[in-house]
Simulated assay, not measured.
Amino acid sequence: MASSHILFVGLMMITCSIALASDSSPLQDFCVADSKGPVLVNGFACKDAKLVQASDFFFSGLHLVGNTSNAVGSRVTPVTVGQLPGLNTLGISMARIDFAPWGINPPHTHPRATEILTVIQGSIQVGFVTSNPENRLINKVLQKGDVFVFPEGLVHFQRNVGHGNAIAIVGLSSQNPGVITVANAVFGAKPDIPNDLLAKAFQVEVNVVDQIQSKF
C-alpha cells in the first residue's frame, strides 16, 4: 500500500513538472546571450555582466517594411534572442509580419511558444487547427487593433484578405520559439520523405507528390 502511495505521488510530481515546463526562469537580473561563448547549453551562456551595454537590450528595425516579393506574399521580421541578446532567459520574443494583398503566412507551428497577434494595418484572416482526432479549424477575420492568440504547438496561419498591404505584430512566449512550416517540412525535407509514403498519407497519386516536392 505504501509503495502504491509513493508511486502515485511520484507520478503527480512528474505530471506537475511537465505542466509547468517552459523557458527557464532567470535566476539573476539578466543573462545577455554570449553567442561566441565556448559553453554549449540549452540556450546561450551569459555574457560577463560587467561588459553588458544598452545595445544588448536594443533592436531597431520593426519600423521597416518587409519585402513581400516572394511566393507566399509575406515577410516575417523576427526579434528573438538571435537578434536581441538581452532576451536570453527572459522567455519572450516578438516579430513583425508584412503581407502583400492576399499574401499568406503559411500553416506553421511554433514548437516552443504560444503566439499572440495584434493587427496594426489591414484585414487579416487568422486560424489554428486543434489536435487529433477533432482537427477543428478555429478562424476569424481581424481588423486594425484586434488581437488573437495561437496556442503553443498548434498549426496556425494568417492571410491578408484586404486589397492593400497588411501588418501585424506578434509576441511569443519563448526567446527562441522555432518555426516549422508544414509544407516545407513535409515536401522540402532533405533527403526527401519517400514519395510513396506521402502519397499514402495524403491519399493522392505519387506523381502529385513528385510535382509538389519539385517546388520545394
Rank of each mutant, 00 (worst) to 15 (best):
M1K: 08
A2S: 12
S3N: 12
S4F: 08
V9K: 15
V9L: 15
L11D: 07
I14T: 11
I14K: 12
S22G: 15
S24I: 14
S24G: 11
L27M: 12
Q28G: 10
D29Q: 14
C31G: 04
D34I: 05
D34M: 06
S35C: 02
S35F: 14
K36G: 14
K36Y: 12
K36N: 15
V39H: 09
L40V: 15
V41N: 04
V41D: 03
N42M: 09
N42V: 05
A45G: 12
C46H: 02
L51I: 02
V52L: 00
A54W: 03
A54P: 11
A54K: 14
S55H: 02
F57V: 03
F58K: 15
L64G: 00
N70P: 03
N70W: 07
N70G: 08
S74Y: 12
R75Y: 13
V79P: 06
V79E: 07
V81F: 09
Q83E: 15
L84E: 08
G86A: 02
G86Y: 06
G86D: 07
I92E: 06
S93P: 07
M94K: 05
A95S: 13
D98A: 07
P101N: 08
W102I: 01
I104A: 14
N105A: 14
T109C: 10
H110A: 02
P111T: 00
A113I: 02
A113G: 09
T114A: 12
I116E: 05
L117M: 14
L117G: 00
T118V: 15
V119P: 10
I120L: 15
G122P: 06
G122Q: 05
G122C: 08
F128Q: 04
N132D: 11
E134I: 09
G145W: 10
D146A: 10
D146H: 09
D146N: 13
F148N: 05
F148D: 04
V149H: 02
F150K: 06
G153S: 15
L154M: 12
Q158F: 03
V161C: 02
G162M: 06
H163M: 12
A166L: 08
A168D: 01
A168V: 07
V170I: 13
S173E: 02
S173M: 01
S173H: 03
S174W: 08
N176C: 01
V179G: 08
I180Y: 14
T181Q: 14
N184F: 09
F187C: 01
D192N: 13
A199M: 06
K200H: 14
K200Q: 14
A201N: 07
A201Q: 10
Q203Y: 04
Q203E: 13
V204E: 13
E205P: 00
N207P: 01
V208P: 04
Q211V: 05
Q211D: 13
Q213K: 15
S214E: 13
F216E: 03
F216P: 00
